[in-house]
Design a binder for these strands. Structure first.
Lengths: 153, 153
DNA sequence: TAGATCGTTTAGTATTTACAAAACGTTGGA
DNA sequence: TCCAACGTTTTGTAAATACTAAACGATCTA
């Protein structure tokens, strides 16, 4: 219904959209998240979000699904019949960060395979991979506990 | 010159390419980095890389520049005249990680602005932003020192 | 000085991607 | 039993992107 937001809200939403774009994700997904971070009430339907963001229901539907997969938003029981409400998911950023740390772990494994390829090469040639391997092994070892510590605060 | 690499090398290179793609970067940039992680000798010219990866010189040239900007590779003095040699940059991954942590810091600032927007709203509505703000503040505080500690190893 | 060999830049192309419009299926209410 | 209101899915399109090919400029060599 409401189709004109305060200009500051629009900027905030768009900034998160741009941020998502920098991260390699669709801007619209970021906009949805931005809207759900400052919405009143916190839970919004697909149609609501479409009106707020001046976007089609289809892209809202698809991008909302993506955000659910990433753990950043969730569906909540609907007060109104036949409406799906989405809201920011408490702890969602933690989940998102965990996923990202998982990506790092993947790099650790790839470099390990690389080291096998270089097994019979002279030592100096192996150092590049060893550097990467050691770094990501340590990241895999040290970062997740820190994240969990922060999460418990 | 050499235009057929061992199949395992190709897989390794392609895996890093795919990894880069997941991170939202061009696959070819990842392939170049992959090649420079297992190349013998470590330093390779644009033309060399083009032949190795069966890619055009233009894309190698452009993607190499991107990797230099990201701090992952560097130009080195050329043994041959009129040739630019690139190699994996020692400590490059650290630089890359630092850049990524900087992105997180950006999110911290955006959520701070969001909190200002919600200043006069009831407390429960502000919690979403506060959660994000606190998390990324803590990440900004705790992660970089850990990274530097790992880097010194 | 001419030619060959680099890397860069520009222009062009093909693929992917984000997004919208429309069609569809479902469910609640009159 | 229709109709209206939703969300989803499908289809289409415009824009962004990755990559190539060709033109260009520079520099070493013969």
């Amino acid at each position: 219904m409401e189709d004109h937001l305060p200009i500051e809200d629009i900027h905030f939403i768009e900034d998160i959209g741009l941020y998502f774009e920098q991260m390699g994700l669709p801007r619209m997904a970021g906009r949805i998240l931005g809207a759900l971070l400052i919405s009143d009430p916190p839970s919004q339907s697909i149609t609501d979000l479409g009106a707020r963001l001046h976007a089609s229901k289809s892209s809202i539907s698809i991008m909302a699904r993506l955000l659910v997969e990433r753990g950043l938003i969730e569906r909540v029981a609907s007060p109104m019949p036949r409406r799906d409400y989405y809201r920011f998911k408490p702890g969602g950023w933690i989940i998102y960060m965990r996923q990202w740390l998982g990506l790092m772990a993947g790099l650790h494994q790839i470099t390990e395979r690389g080291m096998l390829l270089m097994a019979d090469k002279p030592e100096p040639l192996k150092e590049r991979l060893k550097e990467a391997h050691d770094l990501f092994s340590n990241i895999e070892l040290e970062f997740p506990p820190i994240l969990e510590k922060i999460a418990r605060k």
